[in-house]
Amino acid sequence: MPQLIRVRPTKIELVKLKRRLSLAQRVQKIVKDRLSILTMEFLHTARDTAEAKRKLLDEFSKLYRALSIAAGYHGYIALEKELITTESDLKITAGSRNIAGVRIPSFELMDNAKPMTEYNLVDTSSWVDNAAQLSEESLRAIVELAELQRNFELLAMEINRTKRITNALEYIVIPGLQATINYLNMKFEERDREEKARLKRVKVLVAQG
């Protein structure tokens, strides 16, 4: 049973309660719309995250195979010596965007970053080229997965929060307001009836007198 709100039984309070009810109903509509949008985005993100994870694992498996072959061909020490020159800082553009009130991060790997093929092309084989190309693709997949994973978490948290608000509105706030408005209406009707009865009684007394 909905809990009544503690208010003075006056007409002004009734008007205020009706305003609060209309606000709550409007907010409920918006929150429900928002929840449906967030759920849709969440499902997309979940699907994309799973896809990105699968892609990353594939890339890694290809990369390790290529690296093993390159290491086997050149030897670990020689390969390490060549790869030292390719070390570079990763350039990522990090920003944010907004989905229905949720700020989520956005990462993008910069294209103008130093390429990985800066080793001596004469002393190395095509196996190293292949490994370098695959590692660039893996980096891209890592950045993509990082963004999706974070979006996934943030959207899930926001959906939980929004669901709590929707439930509070649906099961506590709106029923409480409606019950209080009904109670006040009944109270005013009762007062009117009492007033009428009193007037009738006074009329009878005056007529007798």
Binding site: R8, V27, V173, L184
Partner: peptide, 29 residues
């Protein structure tokens, strides 16, 4: 209980603020 003082509980006040906040944040982006 209705004839008691008209003060709302802190929970109710928070809920009202939260609802107003919801209206603000949906179009903040």
């Amino acid at each position: 209980s209705l004839q008691d003082k008209a003060n709302q509980s802190p929970y109710k006040k928070m809920l009202q603020n939260c609802l107003r906040g919801e209206l603000r944040i949906v179009n903040s982006g």
